[in-house]
């Protein structure tokens, strides 16, 4: 296995308008994602998950450390990485077909080929027959399917997904999780999937990177047994429960620590 995406001591700070000190969103994040791997990053809200994804997408630059794709530093957004956003981010004035096609336009494909490819990928995500629907005519789950088709259609090497199923109801979410695993298996893409759902992380990931907050760090990387990707009802497996609990404990301890830090800070503030 070769390393596809490599984060080396990545640090990201934001200048804060209120405090003199810069806010540290990510500190010393080191993580390797292998070619074709399904990597899930799980963490509490505010741990810098989305910042991490923005960095991988090239939408922002790290303050320190470096991010390598195939050994070359990431310099900005590029069509070798596709992004699926939490809020779908479809263009409401385009049809499902049009939304998938414009990604291909950016890649410079001729128009007949664009139409054909868009149709094929809408079929892959189970939306055959909905090509001419506008986003307002689609349910949340269907919109996210279009967004996934849009990102897959121009054939990026890495798919970055930022809590893509968070806004969906439980049933739709489970369906899409299964379909995503299926798509990942047929397409062989490298996927970095960000979530705050522990179940989702164990269900989808080959490995799960557990993050802690303030500052955001990768606390531990947990291997998920390969038989979990066999497609059965693995949520009923005792090992699933054990892994789920292990991640829960890591996140919980981090939450406790963060609360204590806050109490200490408040006590110090009162004493001063």
């Amino acid at each position: 296995m070769t390393v596809k995406l490599s984060l080396q001591n990545v640090r990201k700070t934001f200048r804060s308008r209120h405090a003199d000190e810069a806010f540290v969103a990510l500190d010393d994040v080191t993580l390797d994602v292998e070619d074709g791997e399904f990597m899930v990053v799980v963490g509490p809200s505010g741990c810098g998950k989305t910042t991490l994804l923005d960095l991988l997408a090239g939408l922002t630059r790290p303050t320190g450390g470096q991010i390598l794709l195939d050994g070359k530093p990431v310099a900005g957004p590029s069509l070798d990485r596709g992004v699926v956003f939490q809020q779908y981010a479809l263009f409401p004035w385009l049809t499902a077909q049009g939304n998938v096609e414009f990604g291909l336009e950016a890649k410079g494909a001729p128009s007949a080929e664009r139409r054909e490819t868009a149709r094929r990928f809408l079929g892959l995500v189970g939306l055959a027959g909905f090509e001419s629907h506008h986003p307002h005519e689609l349910s949340g789950g269907m919109k996210q399917r279009v967004a996934i088709a849009r990102s897959l259609a121009y054939d990026p090497e890495v798919l970055l997904m930022d809590e893509p199923f968070a806004a969906l109801d439980a049933q739709t979410r489970e369906t899409l999780q299964c379909e995503l695993l299926r798509i990942w298996r047929v397409s062989g893409k490298t996927i970095v999937f960000i979530t705050h759902g522990i179940d989702e992380a164990v269900f989808l990931g080959q490995r799960v990177a557990v993050m802690s907050s303030r500052p955001g760090r990768v606390e531990r990387v947990i291997d998920i047994p390969p038989e979990f990707k066999a497609g059965e009802d693995i949520r009923a497996h005792p090992e699933f429960g054990r892994l789920r609990h292990e991640i829960w404990r890591l996140l919980h301890e981090d939450g406790e620590r963060a609360r204590e830090d806050e109490r200490d800070a408040r006590r110090l503030a009162v004493a001063a």
Partner: peptide, 28 residues
């Protein structure tokens, strides 16, 4: 919306695509 702008950046829109594929329809 900021997300639409991010999509345009992720898809590496050219100047013309910016104007005709995002700006004018979004502001229409």
């Amino acid at each position: 919306p900021k997300t639409h702008i991010e999509v345009a950046r992720v898809f590496r829109f050219s100047k013309a695509q910016w104007v005709f594929r995002l700006l004018l329809p979004a502001a229409a």
